[in-house]
Design a protein around this nucleic acid. Structure first.
Lengths: 315, 315
DNA sequence: ATCACATCTTGTCCAAGACAAATAGTCATA
DNA sequence: TATGACTATTTGTCTTGGACAAGATGTGAT
């Protein structure tokens, strides 16, 4: 359906800012790679400014994911696309997924790709009802997310399909969370993401797991500046600030942001940060509770409650 | 720790990345202002890199707010802090609003500012139930949006409060839309915003008005690239693509994007674009149906249906 | 008043260089 | 075979100073 190898007959092109937005690679990095490795090699517009064709953008996304999984730029940036895709296949797939329990996720992906939107919504909704919110999030949404992510970098689904998927799931989760929000003796938790992180789904999944355990969740949505998180935490007397990250932000940046936020937050407010990027991270930030998986949430909450009860007793 | 010469003994200092993060001003802008206006004037570390003291960061935030409310950098960046704060006070309040019909919006703003979240949610929810979705959107949400926008540029509410407000309303609207989505003989309408436009609320308000009139809405969420909108419209055989814009994007950019999208969309797909920025716009784009207010939606749908019925009859 | 035209403003991009932190490679020692 | 120390390379980020186009403002004529 879409376009072929010839650049620029009808291929959509974008400038360096758009590439930075779409790939999470900074302008500096894009220019440095071009200088050092010869890729990306954008054409130039009449003003001498870089114009990236869609296929290079596509390749950059693959590269991004390979680097996130541990490879180094010098080894992958200059390789041709098919070699990279071969490497993608060879990556140790963290999700074993040979068992029969994730078939819902598979079915959902199939429905998404065949554009059967109402059927998709029905399937997800039914699955939610059958499993309950917690199990639904852990056993369906999380693997489905990974499935979608992989399908996307391998070019098997389009961006608009991912948008559509995220939209459906957001609705479903938000509704489910809304129906039980008002309970909870648990800690007051402020949820958001930092600027640059646009993915709301991870946030909602966390919120679901937290609400189920009786926490009082206050969600600011995505992309709240550090300073405003600090203010919000004070205004709402939050016990915990919980952030979510997908893979698009480089680990260094994430750690810097977290350290910054940790420094500005009042000391008695805990800072939790979740996201799949902590799976193979060796780095940690002092004073920040990082979680690689949603399944860690209940234990963390339990710990907080015990500790908090003890503190109260002492006072 | 590693404090420097002049500014202060214990003032925390940050590098240029942190300033970008906290103020939303890009590194390029920070360097350009320093070159042109002499502010900010960071000290340098041992490696010659910029180190910004906290008071300059604070002033940058004030400047940011003044610029967002219409002032120009050349006039404010080099002024002293107290002059800037005087200007903040002197900002004209754009909202006349003397009538008594928007009291719900006023109450909502009050609750938001006093951080009574559950009360706010209750108020909005009750209001929705009482008025019905359409009237709620037109008579409460729209004026409340304007109220919030004004309060923000005047510095009466914080960014995090605006986030919180948007989040509550999004949940409410999304839920309301979800409970009636599956009906409708009407046109298939693809809803989204273009990259750069992050406001989902406008989109949801439009979706609500469209759904009520029996249209089949397919929402892609925010920030879908042009190329993907085209693909999505084909995949889902949309009759209409509807976009939403708030005021933050310059009109020229909007028009250019619209023309681009219009050129790539199949000719038999209509393109609608709504948003308050069309209120005083003299510019139009050929082939694009622009609407300044949500109230225009029913008539537009009626027109489409009549025209479409006629076309069918001809075939 | 309204429009067209000239003039400033201002955000963004570019090039090429520099440097430190992170990573990989090497070699000797327990 | 591990482990640790040391060196070399890789890589992200910051620097300067210049350039340009789109937006905003001012000016003059209709």
């Amino acid at each position: 359906m879409d376009i072929m190898s010839e650049p620029s007959i009808n291929m959509p092109c974008v400038n360096i800012s758009a590439v930075e937005r779409d790939t999470g690679l900074s302008k500096d990095i894009l220019r440095a790679w071009e200088r050092r490795y010869g890729f990306p090699k954008p054409s130039r517009d009449s003003n001498g400014e870089r114009v990236y064709p869609a296929d290079q953008l596509e390749k950059l996304r693959v590269i991004r994911r390979l680097i996130d999984s541990g490879l180094r730029p010098g080894n992958v940036v200059s390789e041709p696309l098919d070699a990279l895709q071969a490497r993608m296949q060879a990556l140790p797939s963290r999700a074993p997924r040979t068992e029969g329990e994730f078939t819902v996720a598979d079915d959902a992906l199939r429905l998404l790709k065949s554009h059967q939107l109402t059927a998709l919504r029905q399937l997800l909704s039914q699955s939610l009802m059958r499993l309950g919110l917690q199990q639904f999030v852990l056993d369906v949404v999380a693997p489905l997310n990974e499935l979608i992510g992989n399908a996307w970098v391998e070019g098997r689904i389009e961006i608009f399909e991912e948008h559509l998927y995220a939209e459906q799931l957001q609705q479903l989760l938000q509704h489910a969370i809304g129906t039980m929000s008002d309970a909870g003796p648990g800690p007051r938790i402020l949820l958001t993401t930092l600027p640059g992180e646009q993915h709301k789904l991870g946030l909602l999944m966390a919120e679901a797991c937290l609400c189920i355990e009786g926490a009082q969740c206050i969600s600011l949505g995505v992309q709240t500046p550090v300073w405003d998180i600090v203010q919000a935490a004070r205004a709402h007397r939050a016990d915990i600030v919980a952030l979510s990250y997908s893979q698009v932000t480089p680990l260094n940046v994430v750690c810097a942001n977290l350290a910054d936020l940790r420094g500005q937050l009042d000391a008695d407010v805990e800072l939790w940060c979740g996201g799949s990027l902590w799976g193979n991270a060796r780095k940690t930030v002092p004073g920040v509770n990082t979680m690689a998986a949603l399944a860690e949430i209940p234990a963390a909450l339990e710990t907080w409650r015990r500790h908090h009860a003890a503190c109260r007793a002492v006072q």
